[in-house]
């Protein structure tokens, strides 16, 4: 497996004047900074200012890694003023967990982990069984319990409106009721740059700073900032099997496989990284970030085309969101 190791602190996009302190300061203005980045930083700062106990929901996927980068930039030279929280399904790719632990250590961030397994053991949720069994839906209960436990009033997440059509209507500050539920017909209008973070006791807000980013925007940003991401995002040889026209990992026990489903070896990468049980791979030769960006640019398959959890029904995402899913 090709592991791309880059320091998390390394920056790129240096102009030629970078080593010349005087020139650097005299010449530069901020007009070249990506407007999506400016917007996301503004939103993250609003969260820190308007809420008492915010948390950044971290999955180890590229979108939440991007969020961490934006949070670091938003508060520099101070530390990020809120912790990260990972709802661990227990079925995460091992690369993701290893990466997560290294990231928080290098950046000196606080990490909270809550496990779906504990919710199962406590009898709060029941493990699914069968071919399409996944712990993806079970995360919701663990997440809501953790919000309750820590009394978080704002949860920053990496959801994007271009991912899925129900998410296209999501607000940047999205209010959830006491039961963590989303009422899509009773959303607050969001005007201008003004974010209304006023909530009643028991309510919390889900915040989506990269709402307006597309998949390509995220990848381009990762390339521009030279951000390290888990190795499974890059092409690697993997034992896989085919089902329903999708490529599944055969290397991990949690992915259910019938005996008659033949295992083959292919060059693949993961385009979206969720729970192993609901994340399919794509055939790819893209072994570097610039090749991944090119591949996404030319792709004719949408990102969530590789997420089995969305294919359950046309309204799958909307239903999960109403129940409090992230």
């Amino acid at each position: 497996m090709s592991l791309k190791v880059k320091s998390l602190k390394v920056k790129s996009h240096k102009s030629e004047t970078i080593h010349d302190e005087k020139n650097k300061i005299m010449k530069k203005d901020t007009s070249k900074i990506n407007s999506l980045e400016n917007e996301a930083i503004y939103i993250i700062r609003e969260v820190a200012a308007q809420f008492e106990k915010p948390v950044l929901l971290f999955s180890g996927g590229k979108d939440s890694i991007t969020l961490v980068r934006l949070a670091v930039k938003a508060f520099y030279p101070a530390k990020v003023p809120f912790p990260l929280m990972h709802i661990d399904t227990g079925h995460n790719f091992p690369e993701t967990i290893e990466f997560r632990d290294r990231l928080v250590k290098e950046l000196g961030l606080e990490l909270i982990v809550r496990n779906v397994q504990d919710s199962i053991d406590a009898g709060k949720v029941k493990e699914e069984s069968g071919r399409y069994a996944s712990r993806n839906q079970l995360q919701t209960t663990t997440l809501l319990d953790a919000i309750e436990e820590f009394k978080f009033d704002a949860c920053i997440g990496g959801a994007r409106r271009d991912e899925e059509k129900a998410r296209a209507k999501e607000r940047i500050f999205s209010v959830r009721d006491d039961f963590g539920q989303w009422d899509e017909k009773n959303q607050r209008p969001e005007l201008f740059d003004m974010l209304n973070g006023q909530i009643n006791l028991g309510q919390n807000v889900r915040v989506f700073p990269i709402s307006n980013w597309t998949e390509l925007d995220v990848w381009s940003y990762i390339e521009q900032e030279n951000i390290e991401i888990p190795s499974i995002y890059f092409a690697h040889k993997r034992k896989v099997f085919l089902r329903d026209g999708m490529i599944w990992s055969a290397e991990d026990e949690v992915v259910y496989r019938d005996d008659n489903e033949e295992v083959i070896e292919e060059m693949v990468r993961f385009r979206t990284v969720g729970d192993m049980s609901c994340t399919a791979a794509v055939l790819s030769e893209a072994s570097t970030i610039s090749k991944v960006v090119e591949e996404i640019r030319d792709s004719t398959i949408s990102e969530r085309g590789a997420r089995i959890d969305d294919k359950r029904s046309e309204a799958a995402m909307e239903k999960r969101k109403q129940q409090g899913y992230f």
Partner: peptide, 16 residues
């Protein structure tokens, strides 16, 4: 004027 750890001469409109 800072944007992250770099100093700038001018902060353009709509920059954070």
């Amino acid at each position: 004027i800072y944007f992250y750890d770099e100093k700038y001469q001018t902060a353009s409109r709509r920059s954070s």
